[in-house]
Nucleic acid binder design. Structure first.
Lengths: 233, 233
DNA sequence: CGATGTCTTGAGTCCCGTCAATGCACGTGG
DNA sequence: CCACGTGCATTGACGGGACTCAAGACATCG
């Protein structure tokens, strides 16, 4: 790797907080890799060979049943971490939703480095705890929310998360954004079918809560109402 | 705390692997506490004041919507860890399903201790990563599985996890066990109603896959078939 | 300007949720 | 010992929200 101090996710990825010499050491262990939209980085059940930081792009984390039914269990953005450290097999697949750039490490190399650098493990722990919180919130959605509530929740979540990553300074939620997901993928995140997703979009649009200038573009016209529909705590 | 070296979860809780002197240090920071069945240890949204190891008993981790709909996002057993380290608020409630005994720490005290003991943080990280895997698998269940598949999966999971905790040596799955959950709670874990749960139990019983000697007792008569019904990968 | 893939919309079905009644185990007191 | 109450669990009848199947609309691109 060239020079981690210049990395655009330097301050947000788990590398943040490492000393300059540690950073250089870690940098030599990793390599940058571009993946194109649709490409799968690693597959569910495969040996967990690599882990990576997402430098740029959006990827989905998904699990499947033998008959092909798929559930997306996470969406990762720039500066997020992917892979399963300290694990034999990858419990999920990771696939690029947009062209993306990764900073890849061999898992065993990373594991060793992490164990020798508590600061890094601490960052990883905090990140994993946040992930777990998000997973729990999503379990509540999948177990108990109606279709409308799920869509409303997703839109607010995407608005917030795209706002975070879009710019390092301004952390506000966006009122207009591009969905990195198609309808099928939205269904796979929310535990709904493509048709139900589409109908709910149409309904929200008809009610004036959102506006859909193009297939993937969402404008939130009435955030308050959307929050009311999301059944958030 | 008396003497952590004598603790019955000594080898399975996150304390495992600490040096004797570290263990004593940690021991002085915690205190044992008994909680009785039905009692809530801490509430969703409250300040995250404490974390704890479960010494004995079974507890549920749950999240709710404003209107009262509840989703159980985890079941914790003896030697598991509960609470949200490094977090301002508790994202979930924890409630005892049986009488239980905990080893409680003030969160801030625990956080500080953990940051000074990488070995402990490492244990916590591994545990959190496992939790996350489990949460992902459950998201797949909640998003995509049918009622029958959910019930079958739960029974196999309970069989496996009760087998782990029941005895430190024998890690085999149990073919007969007591459910720590009533029908309503099973519904809240699986994203189903009490009636659907009941009907599925009756169906499996009629088909000879399981036997139900009493309300809470389950005997797996045909594990292979149950696995087939669970839609496991 | 078709060809293609994605999205939307409609009609019909089904699985699960809702509501309500019944069954069953257990405890308490007459 | 049995009547009665209480709390769960089971079962039944019914309805609805989401799924399925099938067109049709729309955008994008060669």
């Amino acid at each position: 790797m060239k020079d981690c101090t210049q990395c655009i996710v330097r301050n947000r990825a788990i590398c943040a907080g490492l000393e300059t010499d540690e950073l250089e050491l870690l940098g030599r262990l990793g390599r940058k890799q571009k993946v194109s939209k649709g490409q799968t980085v690693f597959w569910e059940g495969d040996d967990a060979v690599v882990v990576a930081n997402v430098i740029d792009g959006v990827l989905k984390v998904s699990m499947s049943l033998p008959d092909g039914r798929e559930q997306i269990v996470g969406i990762v953005f720039s500066s997020d971490f992917i892979g399963r450290p300290f694990g034999q097999h990858s419990p999920y697949s990771v696939t690029a939703l947009t062209d993306a750039e990764l900073c890849i490490f061999s898992r065993s190399t990373f594991d060793n480095f992490a164990q020798q650098h508590p600061e890094l493990e601490h960052k990883l722990l905090r990140r994993t705890l946040n992930e777990l919180d998000r997973a729990h919130a999503w379990m509540l959605l999948l177990g108990k929310k109606t279709a409308t509530e799920r869509i409303a929740t997703l839109l607010l979540e995407m608005s917030a998360r795209l706002g975070e990553t879009g710019c390092t300074i301004d952390n506000g939620a966006l009122d207009a954004f591009e969905l990195p997901l198609d309808r099928q993928q939205i269904g796979d995140v929310l535990g709904l079918t493509i048709e139900t997703v589409s109908r709910q979009f149409s309904k929200l649009k008809a009610e004036g809560v959102i506006h859909l200038p193009s297939r993937r573009t969402v404008c939130i016209r009435d955030r308050t109402r959307l929050q009311g529909l999301s059944a958030a705590a």
